[in-house]
């Protein structure tokens, strides 16, 4: 079994840096890049009746879009470079879900990019990097 590097990927500049870092690691020491995209979701949020009706349809569309527009092109690109890669798209709390996937896949490392929020911003909204640094089940690299 090859060593798995879980990369939190949302298409942002920061997440691309994280991906480059992970790809670099894999090139050096071998292993698999696992692209993880988490769609922010809480089962305790409030939806209107018509939103409930369409939720199943919307979810399917959201997953499809994430797969097609975000994950597939990147997977292809790094596979061309001869790097083993897989992906996971999930719903949930971003940091918690990344931790869970890392555990399930017995990953060796989590790699994420840092968005560079202001201190106040991350105090109010919480930062994924901060949460992972505290709760990650495996070593976690935060790429600046």
């Amino acid at each position: 079994m090859s060593a798995k590097f879980v990369v939190g990927y949302d298409g942002s500049e920061a997440s691309r840096r994280a991906l480059d870092f992970a790809v670099g690691r894999v090139k050096l020491q071998g292993g698999t890049v696992v692209l993880v995209h988490v769609l922010e979701w809480s089962p305790y949020s409030f939806l209107s009746a018509s939103e409930l009706e369409e939720r199943h349809k919307r979810r399917r569309e959201e997953l499809e879009r994430a797969e097609k527009a975000l994950i597939s092109p990147v997977l292809e690109k790094i596979r061309v470079e001869g790097i083993e890669a897989e992906s996971a798209i999930r719903y949930g709390h971003i940091a918690e879900t990344i931790c869970k996937i890392a555990e399930e896949m017995a990953a060796v490392q989590i790699v994420i990019g840092r968005n560079g929020h202001t201190q106040l911003g991350s105090r109010i909204f919480g930062s994924v990097a901060g949460h992972l640094a505290q709760a990650a089940p495996v070593p976690c690299t935060i790429v600046p």
Partner: peptide, 25 residues
């Protein structure tokens, strides 16, 4: 509270959401 919800169904309508919407009516 979601103790019996399959995590793979995340993103679908939860028991809580259905109840909350019905209650708001």
């Amino acid at each position: 509270s979601g103790k019996y919800s399959d995590p793979n169904d995340a993103g679908e309508v939860s028991h809580f959401q259905a109840l909350a919407t019905a209650l708001s009516g």
